[in-house]
Amino acid sequence: MDYAIQQTLNALSFGAEYALIALGLAIVFSIMGLVNFAHGEVVAFGGYSMVIVSTLLTNSPWILMAGVLIACVVASVALERVAFRTVRGADLTTGLLTAFGVSIILQNLFLLLGSPRPMAATQFIFLDKTLTFGSVRVSSLQIYETLATFVAIGILMTFLRKTTLGMAMRAASLDFEMVRLCGIRANRVIAGAFAISGLLAGLACIFIMARRGSVQPHMGFDPVLVAFVACVIGGFGSLPGAVLGGFLLGIAEVVVLVLLPQSAGGMAQAAVFTMVALVLIWRPDGILSPAREKGDKI
């Protein structure tokens, strides 16, 4: 029983982290058709911002958390300005390769300006305590992570439904040009999407840093790869799909870890990716793929 609860919480917290990052990818993709592989470097930048702020200013974890969120939002919006604006409206491959290019640039900048080795940033580790409820021992970090993710999703949904900018984002995912014809500035909608994406990355960064306690140039790549897969499973561009895909991956990973013998632990990733390939054969556009107009647009 305890084991089941622990594993469920494992699945939820893994899933929450994937869902947060996947949502960040999906919201940008739904609006401008860009698979933003540099999203992981935004997460890593959040980690480096901790190192910078704590060296220059303060070690207070609450200020650092705010710093991480701000850093990620700024980084995300800045990336759009500098790198992605030039390929706006270009085809998918162009955008994808640009994003990969940006990702490589940032990783190497971290390498050049920071260090190839992990740099310690342990201020958030206090979030991870072992809590005991009767006979059940769980990690507080996993609980925070799951709750924070649900709250973030709730706030995001409210934002998308109730505010003009949020509605414009939903409308833009269907017909961006018509949104502009309503007088709403394209730059504002896109900057908004990148800001939200950065905020979600910042949130994920806080939890990743609480678990790792150190920051390293390539740390963003693997999470974004998994989040990318989550988006694929859920249907690229679909926000509910990204959340669903994230949690499904979290569950799949835990199931694979539980079922596979200890010695095959390294195969978990292979198993998960095989499942992804199978999902794609079954439904080439993902499970919750958004309805797309297939006809010619005049």
Binding site: C182, G183, I184
Partner: peptide, 26 residues
Amino acid sequence: IAISPEGRRVFANLSVRDNLIMGGAL
């Protein structure tokens, strides 16, 4: 300049009211 475009292009995923809010976003 406002347009009611060819093929209407209403925002199919938004409610009728939200479509109008988009129109009056300014």
